[in-house]
Amino acid sequence: MWASRWMRGWSRRSTAPLTGPQCVAAVEAYAAEATFSLTPGQRGALSGLANPGARGTYLFGEVGRGKTWLADAWVRALGERATVRRLHAVEFFQGLNRGPVGHVDETIDDLVRGADLVLLDEFHLHDPGDAMLAQRVLNRLWPTGVRLLLTSNYAPEQLLPNPSFHHLFEPSIVAIRERLDVVEVGGDTDLRTLGGGASAGFASGTWTVGQVEPSDPSDAPDQAVQFTFAELCSTPRSASDLLDLARRHVAWRLVDVPRLVDTDPQSRQRFADLIDVLVDLDRRLDMTSAHRPDEVLDVADAEGEVPRDLARTGSRLSLLTVSGGRGRLCA
C-alpha cells in the first residue's frame, strides 16, 4: 500500500531531533522505506511545512493525495523537538462533547495539555454546532503558542459550506489564513487507488461480492467482531459510538451491505463514519455485499441527504481487495 500506516505506533516523543532541511530529508527517507516516492504535491507541501516562521500549517487537498501520511511523517521527523497530540476529527469532537457541561475551556485545555504541536487529521465542518466548538478551540489556542497542523479535504473557505451558517465560522477562516501556512497538496491521482497491498490493518481487508457461506468464527482474523449492515448502520449510533466500538475491536466483518441508495440518510452517514474511524485506527475490515463498491456508493438517485464526504469513503474503500463470487465469512 502506497501509504500504509507503518507509523501508526509513533509516540509523542520519538527518534533523534531534526530541524529544517534534515526534517525534509527524513520524510523523503521514510517514503523510500515504504517503497514509494513523494508526489510533486507532497514535495510542495513539505516545503511549506519546513517554513521555520510558521505558527502552524493547514494542509488541504482532494481525497487520497497523501496529506495524512505527510503530516504523520513530519511529526516523526520532528522527533523530540515536539510533544505532539494527534487527534482525528471524530475523536476531537468526541472529547469536546464529553467534557463537563459549562467547562468547555477546561476540556480544551485537557485535550491539548502538555502539547507543543496539535495534529488534527481530517478536519471538516458541516454541523454548525461543531463549527462553534472548533472556533472556540482555535480562539483558545491562538494565544498559547501551541502549533497546529491540520489536514483537510477542504480549503478554509469551504468549511461549514451551508450558506445559512457559513458566516458563523468566517472569523476563524480569516484567522486560519492569517496565522497558519495554508498549503494545498495537489495532484491528479488518488494514491489509494494505486494499490500495493498491506499485511495488516485496514488495507489488508477484503470486499467480497456475491453470496456468502457461513464458517467457523475461529476462521476470522484476530477473532473479528461481526455485524450486519442493518445491525450497525441502521440503528441509532453516533460517530462517537462507532469510535468507541472501533477502539475495542481490532478486526471487523461487515456483511449484507446494501446499495446506499436503498437506505435512509442516517444509515448512509453511519456507514461513512464507520469507514472513517476504522481507517484512522487502522482496523482490518472484511466486507461482503451483493454489489461492488462503486455500486454501493452510487447515490445519484438517492432520496434525502447523502454524506458530504462520500468521495473520501470511496477513496478509502479502494484500499480493500475486491473479489467476486462466493466467499467465506463468519456466521
Rank of each mutant, 00 (worst) to 15 (best):
T35L: 13
L78S: 11
R76I: 02
Q94D: 10
H126P: 02
G61V: 04
L320A: 03
P17A: 13
D294W: 04
R316E: 01
A32I: 03
W2N: 12
V212F: 01
D188I: 03
A251W: 14
G61I: 01
D276L: 07
V104L: 15
R248I: 07
R259F: 06
L150W: 12
L150S: 01
F92E: 01
I173M: 07
I275G: 04
A77V: 07
V306G: 03
S47N: 12
L180Y: 05
R284G: 09
E184H: 14
L70Q: 14
L274W: 10
P52A: 13
H124D: 01
L180W: 02
L320E: 09
I108F: 02
S152Y: 00
C330P: 11
R237I: 00
G95V: 01
S315G: 13
L242I: 04
S37H: 07
G129M: 08
T15N: 11
S204R: 08
E28C: 06
F92C: 04
A77R: 12
L149Q: 06
S4K: 07
P17G: 12
D309V: 08
A224E: 04
H166E: 00
P236T: 11
N97A: 09
S240L: 03
L150M: 12
E62N: 09
G129Y: 00
C330W: 08
G20H: 11
Q211P: 02
E91L: 03
P100H: 08
Q94V: 01
C330T: 14
G64D: 05
H166V: 01
G197L: 10
L160S: 00
S204P: 03
E303F: 05
Q269S: 09
T107N: 06
D280P: 00
G114E: 09
A34C: 12
R113T: 09
W2H: 13
E122T: 00
V255K: 13
P258T: 05
V225K: 15
D109V: 05
E62H: 13
H88G: 14
Y154E: 00
L141T: 02
R140Y: 07
V261W: 11
P214V: 05
S37M: 04
T206H: 15
T288L: 03
F165R: 00
A220P: 02
E80C: 06
G327C: 03
A16F: 03
G9D: 15
F229Y: 15
L297K: 06
N97R: 15
A73K: 11
G186N: 10
L297F: 10
Q135T: 07
S289C: 06
D241E: 03
L191F: 06
E122C: 01
A198K: 08
A175K: 13
F123L: 15
V257L: 14
S199W: 03
R81D: 14
Q94I: 00
S11E: 14
L320W: 11
R253M: 04
E106Y: 04
L149E: 06
T144H: 08
R98H: 14
P171V: 07
N153K: 06
Q22P: 05
S47C: 05
Q94H: 10
D216C: 08
S14A: 07
N139V: 05
S215A: 14
R81L: 05
V296M: 13
L18R: 15
P17E: 13
P40S: 07
T208Y: 10
W142S: 08
G44M: 08
M1A: 09
S218N: 09
V137S: 03
F36D: 08
